[in-house]
Design a protein around this nucleic acid. Structure first.
Lengths: 340, 340
DNA sequence: AACCGTTGCGTTACCCGTAACGTGGATTTA
DNA sequence: TAAATCCACGTTACGGGTAACGCAACGGTT
């Protein structure tokens, strides 16, 4: 494809098809859109040329002329190695695809400035809408989206006053809920292990909620944040080591997600700490790893695929002119396991 | 954004900016592209209006006028819940994004007819290139891609005579290699557990290679394929149950991937089968789950992210006119563990 | 036979941005 | 002082497809 092939390699335009069929562009256009106003014999001649020349309509020209937007929907996601986001994206793309729209992916690594550049590029291609992760966006990004006048869904982190629409869960409340859960179980000296990318994100909100609940319950939180690491097994393992070395007597640890929690679990067990007798472990997200983990982990369940679907549904409804509830709380469910 | 806002919600065109600044479209265009041929005061007036009106260039119009293609690259992936593909996509998108291109995702579920429809849609938007999973595509899809005259990379499954370019590994050889490995370990009565979606795919090739190697080595393969299931923990668990119920005396099982292998492992262990003494287990893909699994699993390592990057690199090089090796074998590495 | 509607097509204009070319005034050169 | 040059900007045309409109030929009505 990249080089000239024996067959015609240049793009075929409607005019060429029309000329080959001996009709005007307009007639060929009518045939292709089956819009009526042509005889059977004309249709056959045009279609034969379409087939022979391998004509493919240029939707860019159509959309441009009509001042339409493209069927593309920009979807910005921090990172696909985080299974939560893979699942969300799966939900979004499946729903969008069913309704003839296309996902244009942007892995913006939770960096507002990267997101801003990406948004500018996407907007210049007249997308039908945008789905963004999180509630933090650069002022210029917000201004551009406002001017673009397209539906925007902010997902993941619940935002009671979104730019336009929002689906997610309240991570602060969720963290608070976990803190409250542990306090009620009698834990007081608590730890948190996560990662830090220097940006305000959902995990940060969970930590803040967690700290608040523990403080309210008369407890105390020590945390360790691994810098610039993806929240996986090894950061969980070493983060736990750092935390426990720095601070003795921690009774339970809340992890940024289940993958980190599993790493932390392994560290504890390999250092003769009994779970949950010596130390409690709480993960987050109900990630796939838990289905194969040997102990039932205390975690927080979030319907990631559904979240993605709902984000896409809000967008599609708006595009089709239906009234839409601007904010939806997807909720979460704390699932007590055998690690607390 | 979805409704009329107090500020101007209609799209601003260059002509409007020009008019507001008291110059012609052409002058405004020159200013925006900083192409020279205007005075400082004119530039300031134009830029002030750009700012005030929130003008964003319409790249669709530019590309259309110039007969250019879009910066979009169609990427068709079967399924994102399969971590291998998440990782590949991560590699592709990161590389494409670095060079100003955008990933347009298509989750085509390994179905050539879905892929065909998706390809047609994408092609009508003049993409810069295409990256497809696998070597099986519908005849119409192949014909359309040929006519489109854009670079196409088939990835995942190595294809010595690709449409255009290819990056992947030889799954048949890989399956053969695993079969040979088990034969040399002394195993003869072998099993395979995977999923079946009624289409020829890479996993199918691995099974065939595996069967060939085992037959060549004087052994015997029984397989069980779970219908229309994603290759995860539970299909692995129940697939193993089905296989072992149907056939006694199986000495080792090769699984479609590590997630299924972990499920199979759990089934065996919960039914008093010692691993590897009573039964051997081999996974595939070196998936994230293995980093947290309690036993070192025998598996096959594949550099998924690198595979995705390489696919994107081939495409980008072709677009920039560099000579490119049309086919690259990313290879694989069998990693013996404690389960064989 | 004059009138009317319908059918089957062609012509024109437009969408937005840019390449190519044209132009008028100021400045420099011979 | 006339001619050449240059600068800053305007005008025209184009690309692929479609809306709007025009029009000739034909069949049916009165």
């Amino acid at each position: 494809m990249s080089k000239e092939k024996p067959n015609n390699s240049k793009k075929i335009s409607l005019a060429e098809v029309a000329k080959a069929a001996g009709v005007s562009k307009m007639t060929a256009s009518r045939v292709l859109r089956n819009q009526g106003g042509f005889s059977d014999s004309t249709r056959d001649r045009v279609m034969a040329e379409v087939e022979r020349l391998g004509y493919l309509p240029n939707r860019m020209a159509t959309a441009f002329a009509a001042g339409e937007s493209s069927p593309f929907v920009g979807v910005s996601i921090p990172d696909l190695r985080n299974e939560a986001f893979s699942q969300i994206l799966e939900g979004i793309d499946h729903k969008l695809g069913t309704f003839g729209h296309q996902t244009v992916l942007g892995l913006t690594r939770n960096l507002p400035e990267e997101e801003e550049k990406w948004i500018e590029k996407i907007l210049s291609w007249q997308p039908a809408g945008m789905i963004l992760t999180g509630r933090v966006h650069s002022p210029k990004a917000i201004s551009m989206l406002k001017h673009a006048a397209i539906p925007v869904v902010e997902m993941w982190d619940l935002n009671s006053s979104p730019m336009d629409m929002c689906v997610g869960l309240n991570h602060f409340d969720c963290g608070y809920h976990v803190g409250r859960f542990l306090i009620e179980k009698g834990y007081r000296r608590l730890g948190y292990v996560g990662t830090d990318h220097g940006v305000a994100n959902a995990a940060q909100s969970r930590l803040e909620g967690f700290q608040k609940a523990v403080a309210d319950g008369g407890g105390d939180v020590r945390h360790h944040l691994c810098l610039n690491d993806i929240p996986g097994f090894y950061p969980g393992y070493y983060g736990t080591e750092q935390l426990l070395n720095a601070q003795r007597g921690i009774e339970a640890i809340f992890f940024q997600n289940d993958n980190m929690a599993v790493g932390g679990y392994e560290f504890c067990e390999s250092h003769a700490l009994q779970i949950p007798q010596d130390i409690g472990i709480v993960g987050w997200g109900d990630l796939p790893v838990l289905s194969v983990f040997r102990k039932k982990m205390t975690t927080v369940k979030v319907r990631h695929v559904r979240l993605g679907q709902l984000a896409a549904e809000k967008l599609l409804s708006t595009l089709h002119g239906s009234a839409v509830q601007p904010v939806s709380d997807i909720g979460y469910l704390t699932v007590p396991g055998a690690t607390t």
